[in-house]
């Protein structure tokens, strides 16, 4: 835990009243998300945005543009290039994220496991569900992800992104050819779906919507929690510090 903010600067601050000063001296923050993790979050977010946009266009290409002879025009090629480039950023980022789960602080590990044998954790999941169903008056304080968020992150991001990486690299390896190393690594994906690559395209496409649904929920909940919960959310992914709005326990 970092030291509480000193109250010295506030003494001359005309905008701060006594209550503000009392609150400011009490407020504490915990350094939760270290720099590599925060960088990953935003790089990953940007990559996913590019991947969704270009991925959609690869399935449903924009109207034909006749700028020049085909030899000198590379519109669809650039769309696919952006998709592949962002895909590699996502892959390398995800590997880096796994590395940081091992070598970073313990908060960095939350994304990769679910304490499913912990009864208290399940109780907290249930509490969070009730909070979102407006059945609890006040939320609890959490340093890391709340248990429900951890559950969602695990299924949407850890499993979802892994699924997209595996199916995506399999499809990419087809372009490199069957004798490529990547095809040797991921060719089993085609066997698993019965052999037809078209099926892999379809499930990869469905996976995009899985990620888009996550984006909708994630952005909404992050902003809502930032306003309504008792701790910072959005700024935590920028500064790394989780600050709390009150000093009540729990």
């Amino acid at each position: 835990m970092s030291a509480p903010t000193t109250d010295a600067p506030f003494l001359t601050e005309p905008d701060a009243d006594a209550a503000d000063l009392a609150s400011a001296t009490r407020q504490t923050s915990v350094y939760v998300y270290e720099a590599p993790l925060r960088i990953w979050h935003w790089v990953n977010a940007a990559a996913i945005l590019v991947l969704c946009l270009t991925g959609y266009l690869i399935g449903s290409p924009p109207p034909t543009m006749i700028i020049d002879e085909a030899t000198h025009q590379f519109v669809f090629g650039y769309i696919r290039f952006a998709h592949f480039a962002a895909g590699w950023v996502l892959v390398v980022g995800f590997l880096g994220r796994i590395y940081w789960a091992i070598f970073g602080n313990h908060h960095a590990r939350q994304l990769f496991y679910l304490p499913i044998f912990n009864g208290r954790w399940w109780k907290e999941v249930w509490f969070e569900i009730k909070w979102y169903l407006f059945l609890e008056r006040a939320p609890k304080k959490y340093v890391g992800h709340n248990p429900l968020a951890q559950l969602a992150m695990f299924f949407f991001i850890t499993l979802g992104v892994s699924f997209m990486i595996v199916t995506g690299l399999a499809l990419y390896s087809e372009g490199l050819g069957q004798d490529s190393t990547l095809y040797k690594m991921f060719g089993w994906v085609f066997t698993m779906v019965g052999g037809n690559s078209h099926v892999v395209h379809t499930i990869h496409h469905l996976g995009m919507w899985w990620i888009i649904i996550f984006m909708i929920i994630h952005i909404y909940v992050a902003i809502r929690e930032d306003i309504m919960s008792r701790q910072s959310i959005v700024s935590t992914m920028i500064s790394g510090h989780r600050t709390f709005k009150d000093d009540r326990p729990d």
Binding site: F134, L206, I212, R224
Partner: peptide, 24 residues
Amino acid sequence: NADQVGMAAAGVVGGGVALHAAVS
């Protein structure tokens, strides 16, 4: 197709989010 299924699901989730935001 995948887009229609995905858009319908995203629409339901988006509607749910809007409703949830209003109740919140």
